[in-house]
Amino acid sequence: MEAEHAYPGQRPRQVYLFGTCLVDLFFPEAGVDTVSLLEREGVKVIYPKDQTCCGQPAYNSGYHDEARIVARQQVRLFPGDAPVVVPSGSCASMMKHHYLDLFRGEPDFADVEALSRRVYELTEFLVRVLNVRLNDLGAPEKVAIHTACHARREMGVAGDADALVDQLANVERVGFTRQTECCGFGGTFAVKHGPISAAMVSEKVDCIEAAAPDRLVGGDCGCLMNIGGHMRHRGSPVKVQHIASLLWERTDG
């Protein structure tokens, strides 16, 4: 799974954005802030308007034919060489890794393989391809990061979110107990095994609150919907946001 990531030697002039279905409907701000961050680096962002969902929900539920039909709809939207930036470690990993399994033996496997090589998770792209330098303009605050399991274990980019937050001079990055443990989202797992998921998210929030951050950020809106949803349910004071929003908000002069 920890596939080698090849990074373009030159700074790309344009990229595609795969926004993800969760960002599209529930967290468009994260998508817009992603575009702002990329454009500030002089990168043109193209958003193919026919994109829907990477197919992961059906894939993880075992409905692979249905997942493949939806995935195929996405694959053809990103022709050429431009990198595809995804503000989600989980959806990025679906397109980078799991598409290869899903399309093995299919007539369009070569197209899928070519696409998978160009897929990057947002923080990974900002750090390793664009080598961004952030100028923090915000007030002092404490920020905790929840890295999604697929960003950590499948994309191997957990360090990139940390590195970006560490560039913010007035931000203190705080760790918390069992930080690498799953928040209990897991897509359909959260509804199929609601009670287990509930136990996981409530313990996750206990650990986060004990570290008393002002804000919790992450790169995956699934986890954030889960953690943030539970925080608001229990009246937690911690603000929950996509990392793109934190970065843009604090550096936008």
């Binding site: 799974m1 399991c149 950590r152 897991g186 797992f189 959260a190």
Partner: peptide, 10 residues
Amino acid sequence: GASSLCGACG
């Protein structure tokens, strides 16, 4: 199905 597919096992 009783897994969030978090990958800790792998």
